[in-house]
Design a protein around this nucleic acid. Structure first.
Lengths: 110, 110
DNA sequence: ACCCTAGATATAGGAATCCTATGTATAGGA
DNA sequence: TCCTATACATAGGATTCCTATATCTAGGGT
């Protein structure tokens, strides 16, 4: 699947956004993002996990191991208070960016 | 000036978009983009010129030297037919991307 | 005459972001 | 038994754009 380059920079926003609504483990995060964007945004697991570690190191998300009845252990991530605080300005940044692109090219999201 | 990272990937679209409307030299391209986005998108000249060379090598834009009455020579760029053909699908890609982000986070351009 | 600023183009090197390739491990279906 | 889906993990690299630096010209201030 050819992932276009315009996805760059949106990973953080995407991960924080889905974790803001529910507690999810890594594998689930990737699926939620693909599902909610109708497949338009897809983060491969091999790039997703390092992002989760980075966000956790920053204190924006917090992971906890849990045994599942089937298969491997899962590491569930939730948004921390610090992460929640980051999400609002991040959204504003993206809104500004969208406005800028719209002004330049007429591209709109709807 | 702290340029946020979310600009990534938009350079091509920005350059082609402004050149689709008028013939501009490099220095002017940077100013048009900053001006039209109210300063929200700014490409430093040192990163802009290599992008122009790349786009020209691809045949999407075409540059021509011209003497100006004052100062240095200017290299004016115009969109080629091939570049014009690229712009439409590029816009569609960005529209898809905007829709995806909007679905994920509720971020909208307006 | 001198320096500084603005205009204008150019290149080297590197930071940030995300992907490809690869590996490990478990459960369940064909 | 093998394959697939589930689930986490790391190394290395590609792409995109920036910082730092350089060159050259014209014009204004002192």
């Amino acid at each position: 699947m050819a992932i276009s380059k315009i996805k760059r920079g949106s990973a953080e926003l995407a991960i924080l956004s889905v974790l803001a609504e529910e507690r999810l483990y890594g594998y689930q995060v990737a699926h939620r993002i693909a599902e909610r964007t109708l497949g338009e945004l897809r983060f491969t697991l091999a790039s997703l996990y390092p992002m989760l570690y980075t966000l956790e190191r920053r204190g924006w998300i917090k992971g906890a191991w849990e045994n599942s009845t089937s298969g491997r252990k899962r590491r569930y991530y939730r948004l921390t208070a610090a992460g929640s605080k980051q999400l609002a300005p991040l959204r504003r940044e993206w809104e500004g960016f969208f406005r800028a692109i719209a002004r330049l090219t007429g591209v709109a999201h709807a």
